[in-house]
């Protein structure tokens, strides 16, 4: 495993830790999109189908379990926890996320590495992950006061994909057979969706003002 990949996994993990910190400690999910969280839970469930069938490494298994458990527990907190769910900004989280699922599934049936159940589910999870941030970005635009933890959460989530792209470039030159076009293209699309957010996030950090996205 190269340094970019490890750094990518760690920022991904950090984003989850930041979000759990906000939800578990502050008991608030203000500014967090439940739609995006539900999509992530679906992404991980579809991608890690091979968890108990196909062993890669202890690291891999543990990380997969962490992402599965954290994504489902976040959804549980936002839907069921009696204090946390009251802080959920339902009125502004209106993105029709179900409409993202079917096109991604259709695309996975058409474009996959092999036409098997597991491979189609893997491609589906990659496509869905690329667009899963959209409800969150829309909610951020509608949120007047974006708190620091929410901003950091989205920033780390975006940074994770940037680092993964660097990891793919590195692997392309060091591992002759390593080419996963599906994850590369989807990963680049996913990163581009963050471009706008990154711009405003860095500007707010540089100018030391509160993060706000223009509507």
């Amino acid at each position: 495993m190269n340094a970019f990949r490890l750094a990518g996994d760690m920022t991904h993990l950090l984003s989850v830790v930041v979000l759990l910190l906000k939800i578990h400690t502050i008991k608030s999910c203000a500014g967090i999109s439940l739609k995006t969280q539900e999509l992530y839970a679906l992404v991980f469930a579809a991608r890690y189908l091979d968890l108990f069938i196909h062993f890669i490494s202890l690291y891999n298994t543990v990380m997969k379990l962490v992402f599965l458990a954290s994504s489902f527990s976040i959804v549980w907190y936002m839907r069921r926890h009696k204090i946390v769910r009251r802080t959920y900004d339902k009125d502004h989280d209106t993105f029709r996320h179900h409409f993202l699922v079917l096109p991604c599934l259709a695309l996975a049936l058409l474009i996959n590495e092999r036409f098997t159940f597991r491979e189609v589910m893997w491609a589906f999870s990659i496509y869905l992950e690329a667009v899963a941030i959209l409800p969150q970005l829309v909610l951020l635009q509608r949120t007047r006061n974006i708190d620091n933890l929410t901003g950091q959460y989205v920033f780390f989530l975006g940074a994770y994909r940037v680092l993964y792209i660097l990891n793919w470039i590195y692997r392309y030159f060091t591992e002759p057979h390593f080419v996963h076009w599906i994850s590369w293209v989807a990963g680049i699309v996913q990163t581009l969706l963050y471009a706008d957010f990154f711009y405003y996030y860095i500007m707010s950090w540089k100018n030391n003002v509160k993060l706000e996205l223009p509507a």
Binding site: H12, W122, E175, V179
Partner: peptide, 10 residues
């Protein structure tokens, strides 16, 4: 099959 087929990324 190339070994890269094993999807070792998260």
């Amino acid at each position: 099959e190339p070994s890269s087929y094993d999807k070792d990324e998260l």
